[in-house]
């Protein structure tokens, strides 16, 4: 099966993405690996795909999106890096591949995804749920059961499709929705690219809801999975081989959630320890901390989320300032915000 595998990220996640792609190269050297990047190369940082563990970079402005700057401005970094997944997935179905797999940049493969490829022989769409079983304790119900009810039943840190049939139909539908509604707005029933996929088992056929605990293990389901090392040196999640881990929130918050739910499962901490070292080794000094090219207006003024929401809601502003980051023919959006007392 000819596979294209991609992740979506900005330069601040390049270190994590490198760890993911290294693991992909190790376990699936024949896959075509694409980095979908919504960012600009930091000043002074030498970025060459030939030096990276992926085969191709696709930039956000190469997806054929009308007025991409205006579209981009409507989103914060999480929204946009998830929004671009749809258009690229749809484009990838038109390339010469049998399957396309998306993985978040903070995931990492520990064993081949061969059983997934077998599933794709008979299914067109494969999704992994956040949670596989009901929780028992109140805190876990709140964190792990209720949260997916607004954020989405399936974790879209992973999705795999066939490039034809229902897979292609899903990719186009998802792309269409994400171009308009990839927003972090739970009160409106939206949570970026993820909540949309609650519809998938209904809207599409040949969907496989993959309940193998070896896939997409993360702090939100670790209390339901027993992570062990067997006598052959394999890491297992319950009885399954660990296929990939989702290292959500590298840092104190992620550590706190991991401790809360992994409790005394020592292998979980060993995995995190290993991952932290890998990410540290894959970190380039030339990328400023928390860098994102689209965090600021052209003059360097930071963009607030309220500016993005205003622009998202006001069609008149979109028309007046088609390039809201910089100087447009009718003046700068930032100047307008200042005049309105909003900046």
């Amino acid at each position: 099966m000819k596979v294209l595998c991609f992740s979506s990220f900005s330069f601040s996640y390049l270190n994590r993405a490198r760890v993911l792609y290294q693991s992909l190269r190790r376990h699936h050297p024949d896959w075509h690996l694409v980095a979908l990047m919504t960012d600009e190369v930091p000043a002074g940082f030498a970025f060459d795909v030939a030096d990276e563990p992926f085969d191709e970079v696709v930039w956000h402005n190469e997806l054929g999106i009308d007025n991409v700057e205006g579209w981009l401005f409507k989103h914060d970094i999480v929204e946009i890096c998830t929004a671009v997944k749809g258009p690229f997935l749809a484009e990838a179905t038109r390339r010469d591949f049998d399957a396309v797999i998306y993985l978040d940049p903070d995931t990492c493969l520990f064993n081949p995804l061969s059983p997934l490829l077998e599933l794709l022989e008979h299914h067109d769409i494969v999704l992994t749920p956040h949670l596989l079983e009901p929780e028992k304790e109140l805190g876990a119900i709140i964190d792990n059961e209720i949260c997916p009810m607004w954020a989405g039943i399936f974790n879209l840190g992973f999705v795999a499709i066939r490039t034809t049939g229902e897979g292609a139909r899903f990719a186009q539908w998802w792309s269409d929705r994400l171009l308009e509604f990839c927003h972090d707005a739970p009160a409106k029933g939206l949570f970026v690219d993820q909540k949309w996929c609650d519809h998938v088992p209904v809207f599409f056929d040949k969907v496989k809801i993959l309940k193998d605990p070896g896939y997409n293990t993360a702090s939100w389901n670790i209390n339901q999975r027993r992570i062990t090392v067997d006598d052959m040196g394999n890491v297992r999640s319950n009885d399954s081989l660990l296929r990939f881990w989702h290292f959500t929130k590298l840092g104190p918050l992620g550590d706190t959630m991991t401790r809360r739910y992994a409790k005394d499962q020592i292998v979980v901490y060993e995995l995190w320890r290993w991952y932290r070292a890998q990410v540290a080794a894959a970190t380039s000094k030339g990328i400023p901390d928390r860098y994102w090219a689209f965090n600021q207006f052209a003059d360097g003024t930071p963009i607030q989320r309220s500016h993005r929401l205003l622009y998202r809601e006001r069609v008149d502003l979109q028309k007046a300032f088609p390039d809201p980051f910089g100087t447009g023919p009718s003046g700068e959006f930032s100047a307008w915000l200042r005049a309105e007392g909003l900046l």
Binding site: N111, V229, M232, G233, V235, E270
Partner: peptide
């Protein structure tokens, strides 16, 4: 002991437990 914490047999090169240690 892998990472000084657990015995699960003699660690074998090329395995994940080896890499984690």
């Amino acid at each position: 002991l892998r990472n000084d914490v657990e015995y699960t047999g003699v660690p074998k090169p090329g395995t994940l437990s080896w890499e984690l240690c």
